[in-house]
Simulated assay, not measured.
Amino acid sequence: MISRDAVVLGSDMLEEARAYLRLEYEEEDASLGTVLLGAIGYAEAYLGQMLLRRNAREVLPASMRWQRLSVLPVSLVNSVTGIPAEGMPFALSSEAYKIEIDAHGEVWLRVTQPGSAGRVEVACMAGMAQTWAELPEAIRLGVLRLAAHLHLHRDNPDDPGPTEGVAALLRPWRRRRLA
């Protein structure tokens, strides 16, 4: 199970999207924000990475084997909490687990002393960039083009889906995993 904090839309994001879509009035910002969040969610699912840095949590089995978190890219692991079958969750001491974060932001976890925990929850900070402006230009343009597509086709039941141009802009940053 993975949970992530919601993306917070900054005014710079909304302004750039409004300019790209040639929307003149701020009254449209609510619907534009919804479309932009949808485009970001789509891009994150396609890329296999979180775009903007925010908190995330993932629950894994408490295992002696090395396990990789699905959340990417991770910059910081905040805590590891033991989850027993019965009773209250508890903080695992730093001696009870091993964490490795590689250069690509992949986190590997091994629980060496689980105590009564059958599962562990890893709380971390993940995302490619702190702000919208720090994202690579191609990713920003891909998200904006996708938002434009979603905005244009919002009431079209026969929507053909995003253009190949969106995928071409995002593809260089796509992270795939082998099972």
Rank of each mutant, 00 (worst) to 15 (best):
D159M: 03
L32V: 10
N78M: 09
W66E: 04
A117S: 05
L169I: 09
V120W: 00
Y97P: 00
L47M: 07
L146S: 09
E164A: 15
L52M: 03
G127S: 06
A179S: 14
M13P: 01
G33A: 14
V111Q: 03
T112P: 01
A129T: 02
I101K: 03
R175M: 06
W132I: 06
P172V: 02
Y46R: 10
G105E: 11
A117C: 08
N156M: 09
E44C: 06
L169D: 11
V7W: 05
C124T: 08
L135P: 13
A126R: 07
L146H: 10
M128V: 08
G82I: 01
H104Q: 12
F90N: 01
V71C: 10
R4E: 10
L178C: 04
A167C: 07
L152M: 10
W132K: 02
E44H: 06
R57I: 00
E95K: 00
P61D: 03
I83C: 05
P172I: 00
V7E: 10
R22S: 14
A103E: 15
C124A: 13
L14M: 11
V7H: 06
V71G: 04
A168T: 13
I83Y: 00
R145K: 15
H151F: 11
N156L: 11
G142W: 12
S79K: 05
L178H: 03
N55T: 10
V80E: 02
T112R: 07
Q113I: 00
E26F: 04
A168D: 15
H153L: 08
V77Y: 03
L36H: 08
R4M: 02
I2N: 11
G161Y: 04
L141D: 14
E28R: 14
P61W: 05
A62S: 08
T163I: 04
Y20S: 13
L170R: 01
V166E: 06
R171K: 15
Y20H: 13
A43R: 04
L21P: 09
L36G: 06
A117G: 04
A179M: 10
P61G: 01
L51R: 09
S3F: 01
Y97K: 00
S11I: 00
R145L: 15
A43Q: 12
E134L: 12
A138M: 12
A43V: 09
R53D: 08
G82Y: 01
P84M: 03
A179Q: 14
T131L: 06
L170M: 09
R18C: 07
V74C: 08
A19H: 04
V120N: 02
D158P: 01
A30L: 13
E15R: 11
T34Q: 14
L37I: 10
P84S: 05
R110C: 08
R53Y: 02
L170F: 11
L52E: 01
E28Q: 15
V59E: 14
L36T: 05
